[in-house]
């Protein structure tokens, strides 16, 4: 009797372990192992051919070379702005999908948001280039409308990078927002309206507090995607993009300085973690609650 029960419990644990195995394997071999190796790399310095010693030199370089931390800060600020703009743009879209569109219209709108993501990010970004480059569609249109005398180069500007980043991130903001707005009981909005609140006041005191976990979740996802984006800033910003992931790429691939690249990688990880924590603290959200909503 007792044996059978123990057996059963053992079976249960075995099944759980089996179910978790792929995830643990993935986490261990693709995330933890490489990062452990990178951590080791970042804390050493080449002192001679095939000779390395432990040192903080890689991190020191980052702080002493203005270009590096300048790019680092620029990436952080641009990512925060891109996240905020994505939120501003995604909120009305999510509101329409969750509250105003009924039945099939809602799903249709959702699919319209989703369709661009069937195309690879590279192709989508190249599409932007076709539209915005000097000989592209939009500058030609501006000339035709008489707004500019000669075609303007619209690529390689910060605003262009921003447009690309927001466009790439939109869906990842819309999805958590829609799910959190859908769970908002319409009668709460009506009750607030009935008690004398106007539109803005309802948004501030009812809608945003209710959707806060969804807003935070969307912001975290978009911020991390933006901060770690390589393709969009490089293609749309060209040499002017000065995105931190480019610096990492350069260190690893062009300069073959893996130690420096690894240190940059960890700095970026530290930056995203720190900013997410600050964001959570500022919005008064708990990480666990937020993750359950995504």
């Amino acid at each position: 009797m007792l044996n059978a029960a123990a057996d059963k419990r053992w079976h249960g644990r075995f099944a759980l372990a089996l179910l978790l195995a792929p995830a643990l394997l993935w986490l261990g071999s693709l995330i933890i192992l490489p990062h452990a190796d990178l951590a080791v790399l970042s804390f050493r310095e080449r002192v001679g051919p095939r000779q390395y010693s432990a040192s903080l030199a890689q991190y020191k370089t980052f702080f002493t070379e203005p270009l590096y931390w300048h790019v680092f800060l620029r990436t952080a600020v641009m990512s925060v702005i891109a996240t905020f703009m994505t939120l501003l743009l995604a909120f009305p879209i999510a509101w329409i999908i969750a509250k105003l569109a009924r039945g099939r219209a809602g799903s249709l709108l959702f699919i319209i948001c989703l369709i661009p993501f069937w195309v690879s990010e590279t192709v989508r970004t190249l599409g932007w280039m076709i539209l915005l480059r000097e000989s592209g569609v939009l500058p030609a249109l501006l000339v035709k409308l008489g707004l500019t005398d000669v075609p303007v180069e619209l690529l390689y500007r910060d605003a262009t990078i921003m447009v690309g980043l927001v466009y790439t991130s939109l869906l990842f903001m819309v999805v958590p927002l829609v799910s959190s707005l859908e769970s908002l009981d319409n009668s709460l909005i009506e009750a607030a309206y009935d008690l004398g609140a106007g539109g803005l006041s309802i948004l501030r005191s009812i809608v945003i507090p209710h959707a806060a976990p969804g807003i935070t979740a969307g912001c975290i996802v978009v911020f991390m995607l933006t901060l770690g984006n390589y393709l969009t800033p490089t293609l749309l910003g060209g040499k002017n993009s000065q995105w931190f992931t480019e610096q990492i790429y350069t260190q690893f691939i062009t300069r073959f300085n893996w130690e420096q690249g690894a240190a940059f990688g960890f700095l970026l990880l530290g930056l995203s973690t720190a900013l997410v924590m600050v964001g959570l603290r500022l919005s008064g959200q708990r990480f666990g609650d937020v993750m359950r909503r995504t």
Partner: peptide
């Protein structure tokens, strides 16, 4: 929100 009327909702709709 401008009427001198208030409503108690079926599901109460407390915030």
């Amino acid at each position: 929100n401008r009427r001198p009327v208030n409503m108690v909702f079926q599901q109460l709709a407390l915030f």
